[in-house]
Computed example of a mutant assay.
Amino acid sequence: MSELVFPVGHYVGERHPEGVQVVRVGVEHRPLTADEFGVWVLAHGAPEDGAVWTTDDLLRLAEETELADAGRHVEELTAKGLLALVPAEGGPEAVAFVEKYRLAPLLVGLGNTEDDPDDYALGFPLLDEPVAVVPVGSYELWQWGHVAPSMWHTCEVRAKVAADLNEPSGSEEVLAGLLADLRPLLVNSCAYLDLASR
């Protein structure tokens, strides 16, 4: 399997007269061409329940949408710090990823329902439909992830809570769970990845 791919940064819109798309990472605005922006958008994933999203998936969808030179753009965006590639099997590179980034929430929490207490809605108040409905793990990450200076700190808290509940899990399982909970937030633009605070 190819590597998991995650977009980094907060989209802040198109700029004229330059005609570029701008993504903010930390305090820097980074301009993207239309094709680079297309690849960055595809890196968010596709709305499929429980699906991982890899570079192979991104390149397949780029080909289907006739987005030229997607492989080259993946490499360039990774070098620019706008994409993060993470081994699907975890390991030191996955730990380095969660140490380097933190999660910043977007949208508003709309809560759960009596009929479906394990899923939570995110969106905008007073609209008829939520933007996304996510599982409890994703909702907890969305709700509390920005309090931690990095996603690694979130992993540590998750491991401690599991141990306190006599449900010990190793760091690999906790990390895999966090990465799985992250995807629904990114694919639905409920949150974005930014640099860890120091």
Rank of each mutant, 00 (worst) to 15 (best):
M1C: 05
V5F: 02
F6S: 11
V8K: 06
H10K: 15
Y11I: 01
V12E: 09
V12N: 05
G13L: 10
R15L: 09
H16F: 12
P17V: 13
E18S: 11
V23C: 08
V25W: 03
V27Y: 13
D35P: 07
F37N: 07
V39N: 00
W40G: 09
W40N: 11
L42E: 02
A43F: 00
H44I: 01
D49I: 13
W53D: 09
T54I: 05
T55N: 10
D57L: 02
A62F: 04
E66F: 14
L67G: 06
L67T: 12
H73Y: 06
A79Y: 03
A79N: 07
A79L: 04
K80T: 03
L83H: 01
L85S: 13
L85C: 12
L85I: 06
G91Q: 09
V95H: 09
V98Y: 12
E99V: 07
R102I: 00
V108Y: 03
V108S: 05
L110Q: 15
E114M: 01
D119K: 13
A121C: 04
L122S: 11
G123W: 10
P125Y: 12
E129P: 00
V133Y: 00
L141H: 00
L141Y: 00
W142L: 09
S150P: 08
C155M: 09
R158C: 01
R158P: 00
P168W: 12
S169T: 06
G170N: 12
S171R: 15
E172Y: 06
E173K: 15
E173C: 05
L175P: 03
L175T: 04
A176C: 09
L179S: 12
A180I: 03
R183Q: 13
L185N: 03
Y192P: 01
D194V: 11
L195C: 02
S197I: 14
